[in-house]
């Protein structure tokens, strides 16, 4: 399982960095999202133990459904990271829409009013 996580995270990092460096801003924003997904996988892999059941306990702090529960903290971290990256991604796409209207292009080389 760990090997699988490592390979998946590595591939997604590679894809994300390649995509982020594209000149087309929309493609670059895809890279942005792929990178965040890669990070989320990495956070999941950082969890203390791999569980087979949800991390619910009853009033006596007994695991409800038997078996090893998964690490709930990394899941909370990933949820927060997803919300934040999703918001940032939506913001970025809306900026790209505005820029494409103003400049009539999404090529980052041609959006170059800021120089010096």
């Amino acid at each position: 399982m760990n090997i699988l996580f490592a390979i998946a995270t590595g591939i997604m990092f590679g894809l994300g960095v390649y995509q982020l460096l594209r000149r087309d801003l929309i493609k670059a924003s895809f890279g942005f999202y792929i990178l965040f997904t890669a990070i989320n996988l990495f956070l999941l892999a950082a969890g203390a133990f791999e569980g087979t059941v949800p991390a619910y306990v009853d009033a006596q702090n007994e695991v409800i459904s038997g078996g090893t529960p998964s690490d709930p903290l990394v899941q909370a971290l990933i949820l927060t990271a997803i919300v934040i990256s999703f918001g940032t991604y939506a913001l970025l796409l809306s900026f790209i829409v505005l820029a494409s209207r103003r400049f009539k292009t999404v090529d980052s080389d041609e959006i170059d009013d800021l120089i010096g």
Binding site: F32, L91, L92, I96, A99, L114
Partner: peptide, 9 residues
């Protein structure tokens, strides 16, 4: 706007 896109990346 342009600066904001740059900085977000």
């Amino acid at each position: 706007l342009e600066a904001a896109i740059k900085y977000l990346f």
